[in-house]
Simulated assay, not measured.
Amino acid sequence: MSRSGYSDDCDGWALIRWRGAVNSAIKGERGQAFLSELAAALDAMPEKRLIADELETADGDFCTIGVLGAARGIDMSKLDPDDREAVAEAFNIAPALAAEIVFENDEGMYPWDFVEIEICGPMRPWDRRVKSVCVPKARQEEARWHRMRQWVESHIVKAKA
């Protein structure tokens, strides 16, 4: 199971109820205030990079929720990043919203690129000279920041004129 708490064994009405809870959390007053504040915190970052799997590293890197925690001055060393209820309570948001942001941050991007390489030298007759291998994506932290900034912006409800 991931840090978000999501798994593959949610189907039918359980899935419909969960997606409804996420939608309500995003569109609610607390969720909208949180997303607006999060967008401002993301924009204020000096280095536009986001990590996965933890709220904050010793080097001062943050995940999406961790960015707002740093801006608010929350001591995130006392928070278990795998406990979505505790994280949600610390940030005054619904656990469904915390889980959704964590899922989008950690698992919303595929971290690998497929690259074809040519193998030189003696080979067995049945082996292929060109193979496809997985390599970690370059500049993944920067790509995650852009992706999450767009995600946050897409879920902020604009006031009607």
Rank of each mutant, 00 (worst) to 15 (best):
A39Y: 11
A40E: 13
A41W: 03
A41N: 05
L42M: 04
L42I: 01
A44V: 05
P46M: 01
P46V: 00
E47M: 05
E47W: 00
I51H: 11
I51R: 14
D53H: 15
E56K: 14
E56W: 10
T57E: 02
A58V: 06
A58Y: 08
G60I: 03
G60V: 01
D61M: 12
D61P: 06
D61H: 15
D61L: 14
F62K: 01
T64N: 01
T64S: 11
I65C: 07
G66E: 09
G66N: 09
G66Y: 02
V67A: 15
G73D: 00
M76S: 07
K78A: 15
L79S: 04
L79T: 08
L79Q: 15
D80T: 03
R84Y: 09
R84H: 10
E85N: 15
A86Q: 10
V87C: 08
A88R: 04
A90K: 09
F91M: 08
I93Q: 05
P95R: 00
L97I: 08
A98D: 06
E104N: 08
P111W: 06
P111N: 14
P111H: 10
D113C: 01
F114H: 01
V115I: 11
E116D: 05
I119D: 07
I119F: 01
G121N: 03
M123K: 05
M123V: 09
P125L: 13
D127N: 13
D127W: 13
R128D: 12
K131P: 00
V133I: 15
C134H: 08
K137G: 07
A138Q: 14
Q140P: 02
Q140L: 15
E141K: 15
A143Q: 08
W145I: 03
W145C: 13
R147P: 04
M148D: 02
M148S: 09
R149P: 00
